[in-house]
Design a protein around this nucleic acid. Structure first.
Lengths: 243, 243
DNA sequence: CCGTCTGTGTAACCCTGGTAGCAGAAAAAA
DNA sequence: TTTTTTCTGCTACCAGGGTTACACAGACGG
């Protein structure tokens, strides 16, 4: 089972899952038992799958990022609800209530993941109460993300939302070195994450650039004045740490 | 235990909880055990409590409605995240991850509820796996509400959002009788629920009234053309006809 | 019964942010 | 290389919807 996955991928699955918010602190034996029911799955970057299609299996991301978004068919616009990362599982909502989710999953990068039938995943939850110790807090975090998003959309302008988004994705390369935005987030992606549109994001970034707050190059964003950004972002309820 | 609550209130607590999405299908004995750790609590209409203050106890609503909202201190504007009703519990997010929620709870009506220390509620969840059979789907529903709200805010205009909101709260009094909006939802409340503002809601309702879609009187909204509302709720961000 | 309060109707204003469109730069594919 | 696609920068345009302000109605409280 795992020997196979080990030999193929570059990822140490068990180590990853032990640090995953979903499985951390779970007994190794139980984890093995779970893993034995998984199969590996890969999606190529850019692949889009509707909640309908993926609805019968529960997935856990091993590598790459996955965009869970809602779409307005009329305008073609999208909002990102979650940007899922290695260790995250989806679709949690379907897992909980058994109904398909009217969302689109889009592979932001090439994806490696594990998947198992929804029913199987639900069985564990019932049979392994220990799983709840990490699963329930994980659900809480996901709900918070949604609540914050909704609050932001209703209460704050695009400048504030963009500032907050960037701060949440600031990457500390080395102490003393310039702060940059985590790679591969296009203006388009940024826009979807704050419920806006590419042009507006670009406009705002240019403003900030003229004011010396940031510097943008293609596919790269360097924060020059963190303080200023923090002030612009400050306009909301409490913000959380970590990333 | 229950005898006491029975004697005081007009509500049959056990019957209510049996139909509550949180406790339905739970063994009567277990339910009694749980209830023995609850104490009764009442809030008067209009009372506001922050997530900080209420954060140490988990509540279950017996009667009345409770508004869980986020607020922007700068502008004073609010968005309703959930309109909680009898059978609902709060704060579920804090229950899950143990952190206080940066939200405001506002009693829409006079409230009767049960409350218990968060720790106690968490203990049940651990000790009574059966509880999960209703609790997890409940969480799913709550997450869906948040996801829909966020999606709506980002992707649809106020007209669409208002139409959807109204349709979600249409009350079928009698077959053949006029459809009305469920009582006590002021324009202000409606606005908060769609992440907008009273003036805009009123403006929209007047438009619809002129077009014969609805009729409004003080504290009352009658739907004349359900079909039209359904169409507006469906999807149509931009159209330019009529004069 | 009268003053006060809360909900509603309406108007003028105007600014954020979304639409449409194009052009150049970089990257990817051929 | 050349071609094609993906990102980015920039402009002109304008409408949705938010802000403010005031008047009136019914409800409420004393």
């Amino acid at each position: 089972m795992l020997a196979d996955t080990h030999s193929r991928g570059t990822v140490d699955v068990k180590a990853l899952l032990h640090h995953s918010p979903l499985f951390e602190g779970l007994d190794g034996a139980v984890l093995d038992e779970m893993l034995s029911h998984f199969r590996r799955e890969t999606w190529k970057q850019g692949r889009q799958v509707s909640g309908q299609e993926s609805g019968q299996r529960f997935h856990i991301i091993l590598s790459g990022r996955l965009n869970m978004a809602q779409i307005n068919p009329e305008t073609g616009r999208m909002v990102t609800l979650f940007l899922l990362q290695p260790g995250d599982g989806f679709d949690v909502i379907s897992l909980l209530d058994g109904r398909p989710d009217p969302v689109i999953f889009e592979a932001q990068d090439d994806l490696m993941m594990l998947s198992t039938p929804m029913q199987e995943a639900r069985r564990w939850i019932e049979e392994h109460p220990a799983f709840n110790r990490s699963f329930l807090p994980y659900l809480g975090r996901q709900m918070r993300i949604l609540a914050d998003l909704a609050g932001d959309l209703a209460l704050h302008d695009t400048e504030t939302r963009l500032a907050r988004l960037i701060l949440r994705h600031v990457h500390q390369e080395e102490p003393g070195k310039p702060l940059r935005l985590t790679h591969n987030l296009s203006h388009e992606s940024l826009a979807e994450m704050i419920g806006s549109v590419r042009v507006v994001v670009n406009r705002q970034l240019q403003h900030w650039q003229r004011d010396g707050v940031v510097v943008t190059r293609r596919g790269e964003l360097i924060i020059k004045e963190l303080e200023t950004l923090l002030k612009k972002a400050m306009h909301l309820p409490h913000h959380r740490s970590h990333s």
